[in-house]
């Protein structure tokens, strides 16, 4: 089980969190001019890397705030947690 360092509350057990999937996905800036293919890419397509992954987590059973986690998908080791809006390390 993972120990996740919430940027607001500090380290807590994985049980308190829920994972929201890949982070840093920008919504198309101009929806009218966005093609079906671009929408599909935004909504459905994912990097799903084997290795370092940047993802969103929610401290659902704590402060309820969203933040980012840089985590390895093979070792589950978390290299960094950082607040929403902060740049990808």
């Amino acid at each position: 089980m993972m120990l996740i360092d919430c940027p607001y509350c500090g380290p807590r057990a994985e049980l308190e969190f829920s994972c929201g999937g890949e982070s840093h996905i920008a919504r198309p800036a101009n929806p009218e001019a966005t093609s079906d293919g671009e929408w599909a890419d935004y909504i459905f397509m994912r990097k799903n890397p084997k290795g370092l992954h940047y993802e969103r987590w929610n401290h659902a059973r704590g402060c309820r705030r969203w933040f980012n986690v840089a985590r390895d998908t093979v070792t589950h080791r978390i290299s960094k947690t950082y607040k929403m809006g902060e740049p990808q390390p």
């Binding site: 599909a40 890419d41 459905f44 994912r46 799903n48 890397p49 084997k50």
Partner: peptide
């Protein structure tokens, strides 16, 4: 589970999460 890894080698993007 490794389909995304293969897809990346071929330059494709898939709607898959492992």
């Amino acid at each position: 589970g490794h389909s995304s890894v293969l897809a990346k080698m071929a330059g494709l993007r898939f709607p898959i999460e492992s």
